[in-house]
């Protein structure tokens, strides 16, 4: 009487033993090109009434991390968008806990030039996923970047140059920014679906206009108050109040975007 159940148990045991040996599989990874994309350098009018045209921006950055939205952030993000991010409270940043599944490690000088060509930054390694965020670190540029001693970026973190016009007065400007080495920008928006076998190119953009709120990269800067740098230009140097305002703006993720672009 007991033979049947025992035989069945043995049979089932064998089946279970065999089927229980599924192999572990790692996540599928792929590569994607990352370029500096200057499409975000559009002329903007600041809160102080300056029409600002950014010609060139050069940043010393390192260690790009690409993050997927995961399951912990989508609802927050959706909610924020529904609110049109009307106040600073609702600004993006919901990627703070974003899960890093892609990276482009190493030091880089990123140069954006209005109307310029896309400059390759490197090839990122990524896991398959829907990418929604970008993290990176500021650093100080130096000789290891191949910069000459007279290069305006040498010893600094960022240099931006362009023109600011107001009341018929046009001022060329150069903004020289120092940001503590290792300062991390977390949660710059990204939109890209990455699948193995499908070529992808990420365009890393600096935005002069906040895409989610009525604000610009240069809000709060009174170009007329900046130190003169020759007969037709002004310069902002570290240690000034204006510098500190602008530095904080650069440290937030509002003015960066990782776009899907063509190589």
């Amino acid at each position: 009487m007991a033979r049947r159940p025992i035989a069945g148990a043995v049979l089932c045991s064998a089946v279970a033993l065999l089927s229980g040996c599924d192999a572990t599989t790692e996540s599928t990874s792929t590569n994607a090109a990352v370029v500096a994309d200057s499409d975000g350098l559009t002329p903007v009018t600041t809160d102080l009434g300056y029409l600002v045209t950014l010609d060139t921006a050069r940043f010393a950055l390192r260690d790009f991390e690409l993050t997927i939205e995961g399951e912990a952030h989508a609802s927050l993000w959706d909610r924020a968008r529904e609110l049109l991010v009307a106040t600073a409270h609702a600004h993006p940043g919901h990627y703070a806990g974003g899960e890093v599944t892609g990276e482009l490690p190493g030091d880089r000088i990123v140069t954006w030039t209005a109307g310029g060509a896309r400059a390759a930054l490197g090839t990122a390694t990524l896991l398959e996923g829907d990418y929604h965020g970008l993290n990176f670190y500021f650093r100080t540029a130096g000789a290891s970047d191949g910069l000459g001693a007279n290069d305006p970026l040498a010893g600094h973190s960022a240099v931006l140059s362009g023109h600011a016009s107001k009341d018929g007065v046009d001022r060329a400007f150069t903004l020289v920014i120092d940001i503590d080495d290792g300062t991390r920008v977390v949660g710059a928006p990204a939109e890209q679906v990455v699948r193995a076998g499908t070529p992808v190119t990420f365009g890393f953009q600096l935005l002069t206009q906040d895409p989610y709120a009525p604000g610009t990269l240069f809000d709060g800067l009174d170009f007329a108050s900046l130190e003169a740098d020759g007969p037709s230009g002004v310069v902002m140097t570290p240690g000034t109040a204006s510098h500190n305002i602008f530095r904080r703006t650069l440290e937030t993720h509002d003015f960066y975007f990782l776009a899907s672009t063509t190589p």
Binding site: S13, L17, S19, G20, C21, T24, S27
Partner: peptide, 22 residues
Amino acid sequence: RLVAIGSRPLAYGATAGGYALL
């Protein structure tokens, strides 16, 4: 007692293998 555990989905599309123990 024979216990068999099937594969387990992991984060980021990975999969943990199953196993059986006696």
